[in-house]
Amino acid sequence: MPKSEIHPTWFKDTPVMCDGKPLCLIGSTKRQLQVDIWLANHPFYTESQILIDSEGRVEKFMKKYQLNSNDE
């Protein structure tokens, strides 16, 4: 017979919270879950992500090995 006291308590309706606002209810071993980023405020999905590529990979390689792009 399996031991009954080794398993954590399961909460069927655990609220997932972001900035104090409930997002959804899920099942969990914790009473409440706190997330910092979710779909509605993630930079990738809100199109507020800024990609900064000050120096590309090829240029970085050329600079590292002191090569000119005209050399062959």
Rank of each mutant, 00 (worst) to 15 (best):
residue 26 I to T: 14
residue 68 N to M: 09
residue 18 C to P: 03
residue 12 K to F: 04
residue 52 I to G: 00
residue 69 S to N: 13
residue 45 Y to L: 14
residue 4 S to R: 11
residue 69 S to V: 10
residue 44 F to K: 12
residue 2 P to F: 00
residue 12 K to R: 15
residue 6 I to Y: 01
residue 7 H to N: 04
residue 47 E to M: 10
residue 64 K to V: 08
residue 13 D to K: 04
residue 10 W to G: 01
residue 6 I to W: 06
residue 65 Y to A: 07
residue 32 Q to T: 11
residue 27 G to R: 15
residue 53 D to Q: 14
residue 51 L to S: 08
residue 17 M to A: 03
residue 25 L to Y: 08
residue 59 E to I: 08
residue 11 F to I: 04
residue 57 R to N: 11
residue 5 E to R: 09
residue 38 W to K: 02
residue 23 L to N: 00
residue 10 W to H: 07
residue 64 K to W: 08
residue 38 W to M: 01
residue 71 D to Q: 15
residue 62 M to H: 11
residue 8 P to W: 00
residue 17 M to I: 15
residue 6 I to K: 09
residue 72 E to G: 10
residue 3 K to V: 10
residue 41 N to D: 04
residue 62 M to N: 12
residue 46 T to W: 01
residue 51 L to V: 08
residue 16 V to H: 02
residue 61 F to L: 15
residue 66 Q to K: 14
residue 25 L to H: 09
residue 3 K to Y: 02
residue 62 M to A: 10
residue 41 N to H: 05
residue 68 N to Q: 13
residue 27 G to F: 05
residue 40 A to V: 07
residue 13 D to F: 00
residue 44 F to D: 04
residue 12 K to L: 11
residue 36 D to Q: 12
residue 5 E to G: 02
residue 2 P to Y: 00
residue 72 E to F: 09
residue 30 K to Q: 14
residue 22 P to V: 06
residue 5 E to I: 07
residue 28 S to R: 10
residue 32 Q to V: 11
residue 36 D to M: 10
residue 46 T to Q: 05
residue 26 I to Y: 02
residue 62 M to R: 15
residue 64 K to A: 12
residue 59 E to R: 15
residue 13 D to S: 00
residue 72 E to R: 15
residue 11 F to L: 03
residue 29 T to E: 05
residue 63 K to L: 12
residue 13 D to Y: 00
residue 61 F to S: 13
residue 17 M to T: 13
residue 56 G to F: 07
residue 30 K to W: 09
residue 5 E to W: 02
residue 22 P to L: 03
residue 71 D to Y: 07
residue 9 T to E: 12
residue 61 F to Y: 13
residue 4 S to G: 02
residue 13 D to W: 00
residue 30 K to E: 13
residue 23 L to Q: 03
residue 55 E to A: 06
residue 47 E to R: 14
residue 3 K to E: 04
residue 49 Q to V: 13
residue 35 V to I: 15
residue 28 S to L: 04
residue 11 F to G: 01
residue 14 T to N: 12
residue 18 C to F: 00
residue 7 H to D: 01
residue 7 H to A: 06
residue 46 T to C: 06
residue 3 K to P: 09
residue 26 I to M: 08
residue 1 M to T: 06
